[in-house]
């Protein structure tokens, strides 16, 4: 994949932040109120889908940010002409630390493993008690950002999960 310039990435980050700050709280409230299982909303080039968590905790839905009109890996030549250059980050999402402690990836979850959103991919030891690190999205385990045994803080990005679904797949399913 081609390297992207800093400005384009900043634009994308700003858009993602805008979505997360303005749209997500409203969507989460809506999801909680309706009792629906899943909600999806498109804005510009971005698509936000919220899914109620498996335990039925309603508004504690998992959000996944995906770029709806961008090509996935291997489809770069089909980039939407009107859209800005896609960030690599649009194709991946980082699993973050649930607590401050010591990080241990699950040995059986190696780079390249397929995971579903909510799958346990490691743990953070807090005073000897492991707190689950879960995959934020469906995807393939990518590069680790910290090593086994590293001290991590709350919210720290630990490992990339590369998104699996390509726009073509999504288009087919969403149609």
């Amino acid at each position: 994949m081609p390297d992207r310039d800093e400005a384009a990435r900043l634009v994308d980050h700003a858009q993602i932040e805008g979505l997360a700050d303005e749209l997500l709280p409203a969507l989460i409230a809506k999801l909680g109120a309706t009792g629906l299982g899943e909600l999806e909303l498109r804005e510009g080039d971005w698509r936000v889908r919220l899914r109620r968590s498996a335990d039925g905790a309603g508004a504690a839905a998992k959000g996944a940010l995906g770029r709806s009109t961008r090509s996935g890996p291997g489809h770069l030549d089909h980039a939407h002409p009107a859209a800005p250059e896609a960030p690599r980050d649009a194709y991946r999402s980082a699993a973050t630390s649930p607590a401050v402690g010591v990080y241990h990836p699950r040995p059986e979850i190696a780079s390249g493993s397929r995971v579903r959103a909510g799958d346990r991919i490691g743990s953070v030891d807090v005073l000897g008690i492991p707190q689950e690190v879960v995959a934020p999205v469906n995807g393939i385990v990518g590069a680790g950002l910290v090593e086994n045994g590293d001290a991590v803080e709350y919210g720290q990005e630990l490992v990339w999960i590369e998104l699996i679904s390509t726009p073509a797949e999504r288009g087919g399913r969403d149609a």
């Binding site: 607590a99 401050v100 402690g101 807090v126 005073l127 803080e153």
Partner: peptide
């Protein structure tokens, strides 16, 4: 879950 969480505070002290 932060300033009142004994495990979080103590864990932070240990790892830092």
């Amino acid at each position: 879950r932060s300033y009142l969480s004994a495990p979080a505070v103590i864990s932070a002290a240990i790892v830092s």
